[in-house]
Simulated assay, not measured.
Amino acid sequence: MSISKTQVIALASVLLLCIFGMSSCYTVEEGHVGIVKRFSEAKEQTSPGLHAKVPFVDTVQEIEIRTRKNVEQMPSSSKEQMPLTAEVSLNWTVHRDSALDLYKRYGGLDQFESRILDPRFRAATKDVLPHYTAEQLIQDRSRAVTEIEAALTKDLDGFPVKIDSVQIENIILPAQYLISIQTKQTEKNLADAEQHKLARQKLEAQRDVNTAEASRDSAKAIADGEAYKIKAEAEAQAESIRMKGLAEADAIRAKAEALKNNPLIVELTKAQNWDGRLPQTVLGEGQSLLMNMNSKP
């Protein structure tokens, strides 16, 4: 079956339309912005999604605006002039609205990193690390990190990027220093163990002292209680005797007063107590018994 010239033209037209349609559309991935170039001149910045452009004239280059990470291994030295190698990382982000300006000024992210960001990053790190001893960098890196971030942020002021964070990932020190650190730590651990042992001995001694003092206080309290009890009983007994004596004295005084005021009571008492017998008295030799026979009854 032969194909006519008209069919060929129609097929070519459809093919050209498809190519034209495909070249007039483009997409930008999420986390990026598109830089539209016309005859290699950056014209505009587009957001993620589907867009249209002039076919065969406009080209699009994407720039990532998500957080990027740079890692550098930098030879440096500590405050005590000890050589070391620091592995430091930097997280940074391009300002979304400034991506077009960054492309026009530096030609893209790779050029900006190699020409602007990395040299300043290395310089800020090497300026800060020699202010700290190796032990400080190992035990407390946060202060050095804060200083690196502050210095780098100041150096990049006016550039279309933001410093998110800086981290000292690793510190590589000479083997001799690591051995000395281990020896020092071992000695410190032994000293701490001896200090703990001494503290425990002091605690046990203090516990024995407290126990002895408690026993002494308990015995003293018991003795004081017994003494108080004996004293209270003696005072009660003395008071009872005193009260009894006062009562007897009062009775004697009352009886004496009664006898004084009424002499007949004496005679009455004698009569009540007489058993009806005359007194019997045995006198020795040469004695005489006198009786008053004239007394009246």
Rank of each mutant, 00 (worst) to 15 (best):
A144H: 02
A144W: 02
A144Y: 03
T146Y: 07
T146V: 05
E149H: 04
A150D: 04
A150S: 06
A151D: 06
A151G: 02
A151W: 02
T153F: 00
T153A: 04
K154P: 01
K154F: 04
K154E: 09
L156T: 00
L156S: 00
D157A: 05
G158V: 02
G158A: 00
F159A: 01
I163C: 01
I163R: 02
Q167G: 03
I168G: 00
I168D: 00
E169W: 00
N170F: 01
I172D: 03
I172W: 00
L173R: 02
A175W: 02
Q176K: 14
Q176W: 07
Y177R: 07
Y177E: 04
L178G: 01
S180R: 14
S180L: 11
I181C: 02
T183W: 08
K184F: 07
T186D: 10
E187L: 08
N189R: 11
N189G: 03
D192T: 08
D192M: 07
A193W: 03
A193G: 05
A193M: 04
E194N: 04
E194L: 05
Q195R: 11
H196N: 13
K197S: 09
K197Y: 07
L198K: 14
A199W: 04
R200G: 07
R200N: 14
R200H: 12
R200M: 12
R200F: 09
Q201W: 04
E204H: 10
A205M: 06
A205T: 05
Q206N: 14
Q206S: 14
R207M: 05
D208G: 03
V209T: 09
V209P: 01
V209I: 13
N210P: 01
T211Y: 09
T211S: 08
A212G: 05
D217G: 05
S218E: 12
A219D: 11
K220G: 03
K220R: 13
I222R: 12
A223K: 15
A223Y: 11
D224L: 11
G225P: 02
A227W: 10
Y228E: 13
Y228I: 06
K231F: 09
K231G: 13
E233K: 14
A234N: 15
A234M: 15
A234F: 13
E235G: 03
A236D: 07
Q237A: 15
A238V: 14
A238K: 15
S240V: 08
S240E: 13
S240P: 01
R242W: 10
L246M: 09
L246Y: 10
E248G: 02
A249R: 15
A251R: 15
A251T: 10
A251Q: 14
I252G: 01
A254Q: 09
A256D: 09
A258H: 09
A258I: 07
A258V: 08
A258T: 10
K260D: 06
K260L: 12
K260G: 06
N261W: 02
L264T: 10
L264I: 06
I265F: 09
E267W: 10
K270F: 06
K270T: 02
A271M: 12
A271V: 08
Q272L: 12
Q272Y: 11
N273G: 06
G276Y: 09
G276N: 13
R277Y: 12
L278E: 14
L278R: 14
